[in-house]
Design a protein around this nucleic acid. Structure first.
Length: 402
RNA sequence: GCCCCCAUCGUCUAGCCCGGCCUAGGACACCGGCCCUUCAAGCCGGACGCGCGGGUUCAAAUCCCGCUGGGGGCACCA
């Protein structure tokens, strides 16, 4: 069986560092196994999703150097790759579940459910759906329909008495007592699928074999496992990773650093450095070594080696690593270093107007000069007017190459 | 409230599964020195850690239990 992994972004914003990190490991795993990496767009939240963000996310992936074998833009044998275009599939499997009586219509209104929840809270007992609609007669249903109630569809999980086992590839065996699960809604009253349902249907119909995702999904997993069972499907292998933290040890937020991948591009970071850094936030391919090419990472990747703890995103180390890459790149592909410096120089007010070949050449000479002092660059590089470099250009971090 | 996950230097981590080779290794950051007109870079050196408490054992960072701390989940969000 060929390995197939996926990353499923919601096009509601730019690619987030945390998302890119997760996507990267899925990509690494697929590439390591010579499998397929697919991009699936989860755009069911129509009010917040936009095509513009979808395009932006693809751009961010391309910049990072993470390529995908299947996706909304390139197509593939398991399409379509946007959830909004897969409604017929969700409908089909919802009907199948209904026919098997593994799911049922629930006519409870949101208000009624809120009341149930409030009551549970007042009595200090954990809330679980009462199951009022689990066994409605045809007459009862007809009566609700007459009242104009639009039903949701719930998955019947209460009868599932055995312990649900999730064999997590990085965490090991995790057990869940179904006592804590209840019949959850899989289709809204307007007919649209909910995450846990759409996700299972998509992963299965897209033949996804391995999923590396955030720890927040670990608690969802037993719910999904029940669904796989109800549908008679084999669940994929899963691995849950803790989320990246900011320097304040809280979930990564704008306050402690940039959260969008494109911000790092704007600041002059080299994508290979970012990927190298990403890897080290969960895994050290070899002892006593920090710098790994993407190719090496692909070769050495082992899902079981991923760490379980939440890493703090250390911008200082990333900056150091970026410097290592830039200095190295100066010899091989100086143009790329110049390219990376363009946006930062512009936002620092040191570059305006058109970027001409002369500008690029000048930047290149400046970088080359300061780098020649490091001894890393060739001494045959013609000396340039170092004094002409504005001080701020030399103290500016990510591009500071020497 | 209930359920689940996690825990080694300030930070990323190696070691943990298969206890002794760990007086716990590397890297970033930090401090000091060398180099240098200066600043970086580079080189050399330094300080810094197994959350706590019980076990098990001749021996525990490593195994077991409890605690504490952090994170996540319990939606007609994803």
């Amino acid at each position: 069986m060929t390995v197939r992994t996926r990353y499923a972004p919601s096009p509601t914003g730019y690619l987030h560092i945390g998302g890119a990190w997760m996507a990267f490991f899925n990509w690494l795993f697929a590439r390591n196994h010579v499998g397929a990496f697919v991009l699936r767009v989860e755009d069911t939240d129509r009010t917040r999703s936009s095509e513009e963000y979808e395009r932006a996310i693809f751009e961010d992936f391309k910049w990072l150097g993470l390529d995908w074998d299947e996706g909304p833009d390139v197509g593939g044998p398991y399409g379509p790759y946007r959830q909004t275009e897969r409604m017929h599939l969700y409908r089909k499997y919802a009907e199948e579940l209904l026919a098997r009586e593994a799911a049922y219509y629930c006519y409870c209104t949101p208000e009624e459910l809120d009341a149930e929840r409030a009551r549970a809270q007042a009595e200090k007992r954990p809330y679980r759906y009462s199951g009022r609609c689990r066994a409605l007669t045809a007459q009862q249903r007809a009566e609700f329909e007459r009242q104009g109630r639009r039903p949701t569809i719930r998955l019947r999980v209460h009868d599932y008495g055995e312990t649900i086992v999730v064999d997590d590839l990085v965490r090991g065996r995790v057990e869940f007592d179904p006592e804590h699960l209840d019949d959850y809604i899989i289709v809204r009253s307007d007919g649209s699928p909910l995450y846990n349902f759409a996700n299972v249907v998509d992963d299965h119909t897209m033949a996804i074999t391995h999923i590396i995702r955030g720890i927040e999904h670990l608690s969802n997993t037993p719910k999904q496992w029940v669904m796989y069972r109800a549908l008679g499907w084999e669940p994929p292998q899963v691995a849950h990773l803790s989320n990246i933290l900011g320097s304040d040890k809280k979930k990564l937020s704008k306050r402690t650093g940039d959260t969008a991948v494109r911000d790092y591009k704007k600041e002059g970071f080299i994508p290979e450095a970012l990927l190298n850094f990403f890897a080290l936030m969960a895994w050290y391919p070899e002892e006593n070594r920090e710098i790994f090419s993407v190719r090496e990472l692909v070769e050495k990747f082992r899902i079981e080696d991923l760490g379980k703890a939440s890493p703090v995103f250390d911008t200082a180390k990333l900056t150091w690593m970026n410097g290592v890459y830039m200095r190295e790149m100066l010899n091989r592909e100086p143009e790329r270093v110049v390219e990376a410096c363009l946006e930062p120089l512009r936002s620092a007010g040191l570059l305006d107007g058109q970027v001409t070949p002369e500008t690029r050449d000048y930047i290149r000479r400046v970088i080359g000069t300061s780098s020649s002092k490091t001894g890393l660059s060739m001494s045959r590089r013609p000396p340039a007017a170092t004094s002409a470099i504005p001080p701020s250009a030399r103290s500016w971090r990510p591009c500071r190459s020497g």
